[in-house]
């Protein structure tokens, strides 16, 4: 059955998350990291950040009933509407991330070449970081702010989507780093990504548990809506697709990768296949997570 919100919205939420995550990772790397291993991440993150969201926004506009009227979003003042806030957030994000990207380009390609480029990088990273977090949260708030859909209507959804955004972005970078960056510094960067992803996945798992507990202890409609993933149409997809393949399996492989480093203090030796496999699983899992939420939420009803 064709639901109100379909795959385009799912994809949009996924892409928004990827951009947000990439920006946050890059921003953190720029802001805190002086060593080259951080610069690798900052650079790649900056290169990635603007594009998924641009594509996503295009999809969203295309998904509108009247795409040519999208500009109305900008000629309204509706601060209580998550979508209106999100629209401005995304716009701001796109501008900041593009400017930020510009600064990482080789000099001859730069459109804007400020005198004190490192300061500007830091400034934009400082701005991009909260905006990126905002976008990551927004993808969840868009759903979470809807009281009519008990499946969505908990603060956990925003957190879940944020951590998933960070995790999927780490995964994407994990896959991309070796294609663009070589050497020991790059390897270190890759270690950082794997470690970060382990943390993000753990955080996601830590949220799914209270999400379910919260729902179970909540109103009847919330409890009933959870049946969607606890013995309903989306159970298999959620537990096998999202939790097992999207979270537990990549988590396990990543931990195995890190064990020699952590336990025996060895230097990190990345395995390309592991990176790609775990990364892809995380990405697919992230997509499925959004798919399950968007679809199941629309079936769940209040009261």
């Amino acid at each position: 059955m064709e639901r109100n919100w379909g795959l385009l919205v799912v994809t949009y939420l996924m892409l928004g998350g990827l951009s947000a995550g990439a920006m946050v990772i890059s921003g953190l790397a720029t802001y805190f990291g002086r060593q080259e291993r951080y610069t690798v991440l900052a650079r790649l993150g900056a290169f990635v950040a603007p594009f998924p969201v641009l594509l996503g926004s295009a999809l969203l506009v295309f998904d509108l009933g009247r795409p040519l009227h999208f500009w109305k979003l900008f000629f309204a003042f509706e601060p209580q509407s998550p979508m209106w806030v999100g629209t401005w957030l995304l716009t701001l994000f796109t501008l900041v991330s593009l400017a930020y990207l510009d600064l990482f380009l080789p000099e001859r390609l730069r459109l804007w070449n400020p005198a004190r480029i490192e300061v500007w990088k830091n400034l934009l990273a400082a701005a991009g970081l909260p905006i990126g977090l905002g976008v990551g949260i927004y993808t969840g708030v868009l759903l979470g702010a809807v009281p009519a859909r008990p499946f969505w209507n908990t603060p956990m959804v925003a957190q879940l989507f944020l951590f998933s955004a960070l995790s999927t972005a780490s995964a994407l970078l994990m896959i991309l780093v070796p294609a663009f960056e070589r050497g020991a510094e790059a390897d270190e960067g890759r270690r950082l990504l794997v470690s970060a992803d382990v943390i993000f996945i753990l955080l996601e798992l830590l949220i799914i548990v209270p999400y379910i507990l919260h729902g179970e202890l909540s109103t009847r409609s919330a409890r009933e809506s959870l049946l969607m993933i606890l013995g309903g149409p989306f159970t298999g997809l959620f537990w096998i697709g999202v939790v097992l393949l999207g979270l537990l399996v990549p988590l396990a492989t990543e931990v195995v990768e890190l064990v020699p480093v952590l336990a025996r203090g060895r230097s990190f030796r990345p395995h390309r296949t592991v990176e790609i496999a775990a990364g892809l699983l995380v990405l697919i899992g992230g997509f499925l997570l959004r798919y399950v939420f968007v679809q199941a939420g629309q079936i769940s009803s209040f009261g």
Binding site: W5, G65, A148
Partner: peptide, 11 residues
């Protein structure tokens, strides 16, 4: 604009 957000929001 046909974003259909309101459809989701209506209980």
């Amino acid at each position: 604009i046909g974003c259909r957000y309101c459809i989701e929001a209506c209980p």
